[in-house]
Design a protein around this nucleic acid. Sequence first.
DNA 1: CAGTATCCCATAGGATACTG
DNA 2: CAGTATCCTATGGGATACTG
Lengths: 121, 121
Amino acid sequence: MTDPEQACPIAPAVDIVFSRWTTPILWALHEHGRQRFVELQRRLPSITPKVLTERLRRMERDGLLTRTWYAEVPPRVEYEISDLGRSLSPVFAQLATWAGDHLDEVAKARDAYDATKMQNV
Amino acid sequence: MTDPEQACPIAPAVDIVFSRWTTPILWALHEHGRQRFVELQRRLPSITPKVLTERLRRMERDGLLTRTWYAEVPPRVEYEISDLGRSLSPVFAQLATWAGDHLDEVAKARDAYDATKMQNV
DNA sequence: CAGTATCCCATAGGATACTG
DNA sequence: CAGTATCCTATGGGATACTG
């Protein structure tokens, strides 16, 4: 984190919001409501507990979600998207629209590029 | 790239659009128009030529920008944002708005979190 | 000018096993 | 159940030097 921010006003937000797992986690919480660690694990089948924990901690710290601990046996912990997390909805909606409209163009561009570069392998 | 996509419809777009340098580069091209390698280097002072080259190649492959080579001496190459790249403007605008409205909340959330966790050095 | 070529590092992420 | 603890790897990124 040196200074790409200076050249680009959205760089700080990108740092907070976009990573391999933040959007899937936020999406799961948004779509399926308040849920427990193990439920998130089931919805994100390929994530490992270590990584899920790390991401949840960071997102909790950033205020994107809340973590509620119930001192029961066995322990129960519930995660819920916060208002701040929910405030990202328009951004995600906009991006979803873009993806729907343009992802195939990206695929075509890649094919064209790879074809002209004639993949030297 | 295994399957966070399955759980989250915007994950593929995130992969393409957001990285440490894609948004700053796109922003520079959007704000200052068609320009040469060295000009981009000047606008992104902390990027190294290696990384700038890598990013530009990938973005060219994805169709986000175009690269035009002039067989002159000394060589001249110009980069320009493409229509596809420009189609991201609403997404970036939305994100810029979110950042303006909520980045301070993130900062506060972090302070609060760090305070309660009492930072064990 | 517009890159390559090397070498190096930090970190996100992954595999696996274990615990209060 | 909700995580830790270890160990490991891949990759994005960085520093520096060189070239057609």
